[in-house]
Design a binder for these strands. Structure first.
Length: 463
RNA sequence: GGCCCCGUCGUCUAGCGGUUAGGAUCCAUGGUUUUCAUCCAUGUUACAGGAGUUCAAUUCUCCUCGGGGUCACCA
């Protein structure tokens, strides 16, 4: 069984990049009937917060990405880590290091001055003397000093590192006893049965260190897939400063989970020429072997297109439900089908859609100045009057076609072009020059409201 | 700087030795539409550069250049 995980550190909200790796992990587990688990990496007490954890969970809930089993919190697993630290100490695979922070800094500075690689010098690796006073020891693991370490990566292929280039005896437990990242990640992944790790390739250079831990503890390393970064328009790693990278901001902007997920799954992954993926299709088709090797630049043009596409293809009943978050209750509106049909081709986001709906169902309180100037010419008021009279004397009016007939009558009787009535009528009804078909608009708002809006516009343009 | 990764239209990408280098988006133009949008059609734009290997390189190898990541008692 394939078990994948998403392991965020709760130092902020969930952002686009994190979400994508989570999505990949989720899809791969689901496709194989496996498990997708969530682990909160909160070993650094100074930097983590409960709010951040909650924000991440909220985002997952909105998107409908469910994790399997209980959420694992690293902060609650100190006993486990302690056990393995003791084990390594007993076996002589780790040791206490009494080098003070000042001494370490000095060491690094000299190395930099000599243009050497900064690394711990192994001073206490085989120390058996009397420890210096006043220094709380950290625990360091004995890393191989030479040799080749090969990371078998499912995206990039085999990657070879030389131990002397990248390794030193790195700290696995801080002076206060708290274990460090590269140590606990390896332990947790092993203990949780994680056998396929999909993560950002910014972790690539950590992987050899984690393999040292796997090796020391006798654990089997998982299969790794390091997915390329998502870059901002400047070509740099996406960071929290890059505007709307908080996943929940996309909800605010009116994007649906379906469009966001579809957008993200195509960033760095593809399945031939296919652009549209339902959740089912993603689950059936996703395979990390098809993840591409190079970083992609984040850009929302395609998201907008996808979002528009999904709105167009969402059934009206579902759309009405989604619009409720904008305090639009359309369920009782007798012309909601016409309304939604007219608008779903015009909106890129739900938020835009909500605005468009309001522009129709609410009586305009202001009129676009340029539109008025352009639409109201000599005779416009008379035309509107004639049309108003038609409506008044007409019987029941329901469908767009009913109103359309009346417009045709006016056009024919007055021997004018359609635009002559269309332009001023549009401004009267909507307060602007653009929008859905006028017959539809009138059908949606009904006879009384139509007459009211025409009368308002006539009053306004008569003096 | 060391180490590692990457390099096809502006952007997302297909390609897996022989293609008129494909799709999508964006943009432009035309058509449909009383307007706007949708929709349809058409069009502009890419293999970073240089050596090799080969009958043949976008595709394989090397170098150069460019970009990115990472080098903590952060994760």
């Amino acid at each position: 069984m394939i078990v994948t995980r998403f392991a965020p550190s709760p130092t902020g909200y969930l952002h686009i990049g994190g979400l994508r790796t989570a999505l990949f992990s989720y899809l791969w587990a689901k496709k194989n009937g496996g498990k997708f688990v969530l682990r909160i990496e909160d070993t650094d007490k100074a930097r983590n917060s409960q709010e951040a954890t909650d924000a991440i969970l909220e985002a997952f809930e909105w998107l409908g990405l469910e994790h399997d089993g209980d959420i694992i919190y690293q902060s609650q697993r100190d006993d486990i880590y302690k056990k393995y630290i003791d084990q390594l100490l007993d076996e002589g695979k780790a040791y206490k290091c009494y080098m003070s922070k000042e001494e370490l800094t000095e060491l690094r500075e000299t190395q930099m001055a000599n243009k050497e690689r900064t690394k711990y010098n192994g001073k206490y690796r085989d120390f058996d003397g009397t420890p210096p006073e006043g220094v709380e020891a950290v625990i360091r693991i004995k890393a191989p000093l030479t040799g080749e370490i090969i990371v078998k990566d499912g995206v990039k292929g085999d990657i070879s590192f030389q131990a002397e280039d990248i390794l030193d005896d790195f700290v696995i437990a801080r002076a206060d006893g708290a274990p460090t990242y590269n140590f606990v990640v390896a332990i947790d992944d092993a203990l949780m049965g994680i056998n396929e790790v999909i993560r950002g390739d910014d972790h690539l250079s950590n992987t050899p260190k984690q393999m040292v831990v796997y090796e020391a503890l006798g654990f089997e390393p998982p299969k790794f897939y390091h997915v390329p970064m998502i870059h901002n328009s400047a070509g740099k790693k996406l960071s929290k400063r890059d505007g709307a990278t908080d996943v929940m901001a996309y909800k605010e902007m009116g994007y649906t989970p379906a469009s966001l997920l579809n957008f993200l799954v195509r960033l760095g992954w593809s399945h031939g020429d296919q652009e549209i993926f339902s959740m089912d299709e993603m689950q059936n088709l996703f395979n990390p072997k098809d993840i591409n090797k190079s970083a992609s630049i984040y850009n929302t043009e395609k998201l907008d297109w996808l979002s528009a596409h999904y709105i167009k293809n969402t059934p009206n009943s579902e759309l009405a439900k989604q619009l409720e978050q904008y305090e639009l209750i359309l369920t009782s509106h007798d012309k909601k089908e016409i309304l939604l049909d007219e608008l779903k081709d015009r909106a890129k986001t739900l938020k835009e859609m909500a605005t468009l709906v309001k522009e129709i169902i609410e009586t305009p309180t202001s009129y676009d100045e340029k539109a008025v100037k352009k639409a109201f010419k000599e005779g416009s008021v008379e035309i509107l009057n004639a049309f108003g009279a038609k409506i008044t004397s007409a019987g029941e009016l329901h469908l767009p076609v009913d109103y359309h007939h009346l417009m045709e009558e006016v056009v024919n009787e007055m021997e004018i072009g359609f635009g002559k009535i269309g332009q001023p009528l549009r401004v009267a009804l909507l307060g602007k020059m653009t929008g859905p078909g006028l017959d539809s608009v009138m059908s949606i708002i009904g006879k009384d409201e139509t007459m009211l809006r025409i009368a308002n516009a006539i009053t306004l343009n008569s003096n």
